[in-house]
């Protein structure tokens, strides 16, 4: 069976610095997979290379077996992969509902403004229906729909960013640092929501996370990145028992740096 997402020996460089050094990964439809690792391990670079934000120096990215390496972000969105960026990055001055609608506009935006806009306008009924579905999944967003997104709480902004990504009707939702800067209770409820989204709607998840505990709870498999390389991979349950992972990521004996 062809994987939904297949990354083959991907390398990302910033000038002479190598951020991602030959990472391969695979994700099937409907899976929940985590990418964990310390700050600067190359998780976000890998995700951004998959989503077309940065061009990889080497390696390939395939969606449904089709090569999308170096394609524009919009192309990747239209192939069914949407990203929730690190730090949410909501459109602050626009109302929550406009944030969501732009998710739908972006999906039909092919670089040419007039035809893209006509396509969006002709599909408005469908967009409306999808918006309704997202309001049903995340009722909080309906309450907030007229408020500028910048004036909502961190957790609410994360919901806006997720809702915006879902407006493109993705088959894979790639989330960069779900828990960053959010209260544990908020993170828990978002995790519950994402699990339900995955189980009920079949949307696959790729979670980039520094909080390994959360990643293992939410995802069935995980890849461990260190210094740009994939050092471990396997089912979450297995990795959770792994000595190295326990020590490095699950607080099993803190490594204290020499003073």
């Amino acid at each position: 069976m062809t994987a939904l997402l297949e990354v083959d020996h991907l390398q990302v460089r910033y000038g002479p610095a190598v951020a991602v050094d030959g990472v391969s990964l695979r994700l099937d439809a409907g899976e929940r997979v985590a990418l964990i690792g310390p700050n600067g391990a190359g998780k976000s670079s890998l995700l951004n290379a998959i989503c077309g934000v940065i061009k990889p120096a080497e390696g390939r990215v395939r969606v449904d077996g089709r090569d999308v390496t170096g394609a524009a972000p919009g192309t990747v969105v239209r192939k069914g992969i949407s990203q929730v960026p690190e730090g949410r990055q909501v459109f602050q001055s626009l109302p929550v509902e406009s944030n969501l609608l732009l998710g739908a506009y972006g999906r039909v935006f092919t670089g040419e403004l007039v035809s893209s806009t006509l396509r969006y306008l002709s599909g408005r009924a469908e967009t409306r229906a999808r918006l309704e579905r997202i309001y049903e999944l995340l009722p909080k967003l309906r309450e907030l729909r007229e408020r500028p997104a910048g004036q909502t709480s961190g957790g609410e902004q994360q919901m806006v960013a997720i809702g915006r990504a879902l407006m493109a009707d993705p088959r894979l939702l790639a989330i960069d640092e779900l828990s960053l800067g959010l209260a544990p209770l908020v993170v828990q409820s978002l995790a519950t929501f994402l699990r339900a989204l995955n189980e009920e709607q079949g949307v696959a998840l790729l979670l980039v996370e520094q909080n390994a505990q959360l990643a293992f709870e939410l995802c069935t498999r995980a890849y461990v990145l260190e210094a740009g390389r994939c050092v471990l991979e396997g089912p979450s349950a297995e990795l959770q028992r792994n000595e190295v992972v326990r020590n490095a990521y699950l607080g099993g004996g803190l490594e204290v740096a020499p003073a």
Binding site: Q92, L102, G106
Partner: peptide, 13 residues
Amino acid sequence: SDSRRAAELVGLS
């Protein structure tokens, strides 16, 4: 203007 990165990520050119 709010977030060029996010605008790109949703697919806007």
